[in-house]
């Protein structure tokens, strides 16, 4: 009996000790590079599983009745950049989208030229990584249309979107994002210039923003200035393929 009581006491103490230590331990582990690398295998598992299941699946499209009364602006609502503010004042008349990098025919597209290309309209849900969502109606040109005009090279693997909004107070560290060719050529992947039937407002990313509907909100780059096709994004900014990715978020944001 005393043997059992001793074991019991040991066990109770061990349990209390373990729970206190493990909480502190989890925070220590979060700081460890090798452990976060292990944790991020979850991301590659998800990405590979998703790609295995379906490459071309279509995001749900909604009816007008489902649209959110106003589409929330998150992150930057007015880029802290004089150059951008001049573009706003002139109605983006001097804005042109440069598409370059690993392409046969680098080109610049004015807003009018983009709007003249075949368009697609879709009512989709925007899922923020934070947990909220909003439904809006987007009209834009399929990224595929634009890419087919610049003819990506065989070795182009990612499309990088360079944006106008600096993320630091001093005007540096511009927002950027990247997606792979699979998503770039998806039917619902748009360079959107209209939201809810009106010209895309500045707070939502004027003159164009990306819609890549099977991923989270931070992939939907706003204020796109330049598109670059690359075989690797390791040399760009923090090397993780996006502003939020550089701070630790997943590059694949399908979850």
């Amino acid at each position: 009996m005393t043997h059992e009581t001793g074991r019991r006491r040991f066990f109770t103490r061990a349990l209390a000790g373990i729970s206190a230590l493990s909480l502190a331990g989890c925070d220590k582990l979060s700081q460890s590079e090798s452990f976060t690398k292990l944790l991020s295998t979850g991301e590659s598992l998800s990405k590979n599983a998703h790609r295995l299941v379906s490459r071309k699946s279509m995001a749900q499209e909604f009816s007008e009745a489902d649209m959110s009364p106003s589409f929330r602006s998150n992150g930057t609502s007015m880029p802290n950049s004089v150059d951008y503010q001049v573009l706003v004042e002139t109605g983006f008349a001097d804005w042109a989208l440069e598409v370059s990098g690993l392409v046969a025919q680098p080109q610049k597209f004015t807003l009018a030229q983009l709007q003249a290309l075949p368009s697609r309209t879709q009512i989709t849900r925007h899922d923020c990584v934070e947990g909220w969502s909003a439904i809006g109606k987007w009209k834009g040109v399929r990224l595929h249309e634009v890419l087919s005009r610049v003819q990506p090279s065989e070795n182009a693997r990612y499309v990088v979107f360079h944006c106008a909004d600096p993320m630091e107070e001093d005007g540096t560290n511009h927002y950027y994002e990247s997606i792979d060719m699979e998503d770039a050529n998806h039917t619902q992947t748009l360079l959107a210039y209209e939201l809810n039937g009106e010209t895309l407002p500045v707070k939502n990313g004027a003159p164009i923003r990306l819609r890549v509907e099977r991923q989270l909100g931070y992939k939907q780059a706003k204020y796109i200035m330049r598109i670059e096709l690359v075989d690797s994004f390791e040399h760009i900014a923090g090397g993780k393929g996006g502003y939020w990715e550089d701070t630790g978020y997943e590059w694949y944001a399908g979850i």
Binding site: L23, S30, T36, L38, L39, S40, G42, G248, Y249
Partner: peptide, 22 residues
Amino acid sequence: WATIPGPQWLAMARHWHFFFAW
């Protein structure tokens, strides 16, 4: 005391959540 990690850290919490979800 009820969250992993302790500080508010969405990116890291997601890494924990999805690894252990698998």
